[in-house]
Amino acid sequence: CDSGDTNTLQVTGRSDPKFYYGSSGSNCGSSDCETDTTPASSSSNTTNTITITLNARTGNSHTVDCDTEHNSGGIDVYQGSTYNWAYTLTNTGWNTDNYQFTSTVTSDSGADTTGWSVTSGLVNGKELTGVDTSLSGTSVATSSIQITPSLTARPGTYSIEMVVSSNNGGAPQNCDFDVIVPQPDLEIKNTDVDFSHTSAWINTRGDTQKVTIYATVRNTGGNIDSTGITTNEVTVKFYADSAPIGTSQVVSLKHGEEKEISVEWNPGRAHTSDEVGLVVTVKVDPSSDIEESNEANNEASQFFKVVRTKSSTPSFFMGFFALIGSVAVAVMLSSYYRNKDSEE
């Protein structure tokens, strides 16, 4: 049986001080004068059965059970972030015991694990009381394995193992599970593209209203791809009618980061009656320099209306009238001070 098994032992006690003559012997109770296989013809004695329940115990034994995911949920982990993986250690032995903890990380693909930090939570020498009811104390301890992937950890599956060894001879027990370091996932959605104006104008001379285009980009994946390229320098480009707007912009996007960038744009034409508007597109990592878990979410577009006006633009008229007003005020002030000086 194993430690913790329960079974029943029956002890039967038989007593009969009387004996009866057998068929072939004299003064004995059976034919061979050694055993009596026939019941007595009469007896005041009874046969009693005593039941004893035995619970097998090992002096030193224990179990360790780990959760199926870390404290943030799931098994994905990211470079430089710390995750807690809860576990329960139980002393199932009869005696009080204390333990040593050893935690390791290995890569299924043979990737370098230098720089990873994996700690067991409980310190070496942790003591737990046995199940002997005469003892005082606790037989159960809960804690967490703390896991921090290296800043340079490549994407892939890694195995975490914690071995708990008894210092008093009990068999060691382990807890092991896999974690995944994901590829980068750079993302931009159509709703992440916005404008400083709802529309713009362009006149027959080619003068246009200046518009600022805003874009929000993010990284929902890891910080390094399988080839070792980081997300410290991510290229973002703006396009209108498939033509680049300005120069490429470079941003750093760590896991979970989201950044807004912008560019100024002077539309080159008005949209036609057959068009909803000019197509403005923003692309993240347009040359696919970084390997990602999803390459299909790196581009977003919006339509922007540009209308044609006559050569005299509203801004020209406003500037012209403002200039006239300024000159008039200057003339009036000059006349006022000349008259004042002559009166004095």
Rank of each mutant, 00 (worst) to 15 (best):
S3G: 14
D5V: 09
T6S: 07
S24W: 02
S26T: 09
S31F: 01
C33T: 01
C33P: 01
T35C: 07
T35W: 06
S44P: 03
I50V: 07
T53S: 13
L54M: 09
R57C: 07
G59S: 15
G59E: 15
S61Y: 01
V64D: 05
H70C: 04
G74V: 09
D76P: 05
Q79L: 01
N84P: 01
W85S: 06
Y87G: 02
T88Q: 13
T90S: 14
Q100A: 14
T106M: 11
S109K: 10
T113R: 03
W116G: 04
T119A: 03
N124E: 01
N124W: 01
K126Q: 15
E127R: 13
V131L: 10
S139D: 08
T142I: 10
I147Y: 04
P149Q: 12
P149H: 11
P149S: 05
L151E: 15
T152R: 07
R154A: 13
P155I: 06
G156C: 11
E161D: 12
V163G: 04
S165D: 14
N167H: 11
G169H: 00
P172N: 11
D176G: 13
Q183L: 10
P184D: 02
T191G: 02
D192N: 05
D194S: 11
F195M: 01
F195I: 00
S196Y: 07
T198N: 12
A200R: 07
A200C: 10
D207F: 12
Y214V: 00
A215K: 00
R218C: 00
R218D: 00
G221E: 00
S226H: 07
E233N: 15
T235P: 07
Y239E: 06
A243I: 14
V250M: 08
V251T: 04
E260W: 02
S262F: 07
E264Q: 07
W265Y: 11
H271Y: 11
T272W: 03
V276M: 08
V276N: 13
V276A: 15
L278C: 01
T281Y: 00
S287G: 05
S288Q: 02
E291L: 06
E292Y: 03
N294D: 14
A296Q: 13
A296K: 03
E299P: 02
E299L: 06
V306E: 02
V307T: 14
R308K: 15
R308E: 15
T309F: 06
S311M: 12
P314W: 06
F317E: 11
V331N: 03
S342T: 13
E344V: 13
